[in-house]
Amino acid sequence: MGGPEIERLIGLLAKLPGMGPRSARRAALRMLQQPDTRMLPLATALADAARAVKPCSVCGNLDSQDPCAICGDSRRDRSVICVVEGVGDLWALERASVFHGLYHVLGGTLSALSGVGPEDLNVTPLLVRVEQGVTEVILALGATVDGATTAHWLTDRLKPLGVTVTRVAQGVPIGGALDVLDDGTLAAALRARRPS
């Protein structure tokens, strides 16, 4: 079907998250039909990003400058660090514009079954940062077994440093009704209740 170049392109595209063989074929075809407007600019953008973007040496965010734009922004609150599992979570929080402190990207969560231990996570730099005037660490990790276990483990490490450790709340979603929530979410919501 059109030579090894096309097969290789489709094969590489199909490995991307959210893509399968069918969507990879569609994307490849669209690019091949418009090489000047779609394909070559993309190839240049890919090469530029691969060359320039690196993990921030402070927080682990991806950026073309080091420290990243967030770590380098003097207007951000340096007393609060929000710990996230991955850069995607950092982007989600930034999109919401609800947090104006600094971040720390762990690069994963503890998972004994996947062979991910504390030594595989970006933890030591976090402990060093916390000792430099940080008053609160917010653990914004997923409500999965691995996310909750990692939060538990991190709390154990951070508490002795005298910093306040908080976790993002779990419970009733905005716009959600109570009667459709499962028992676990309802229990979490009740546990995390606060004065009204």
Partner: peptide, 26 residues
């Protein structure tokens, strides 16, 4: 899932109390 991870840690002799505690909490 949490139990399988705790079993794995115990079998490997990785007695990290905080990690085990997190899994036991789950």
């Amino acid at each position: 899932n949490a139990m399988a991870q705790r079993n794995r840690l115990l079998a490997e002799g990785r007695l990290d109390a905080a990690w085990l505690g997190g899994l036991e909490d789950a």
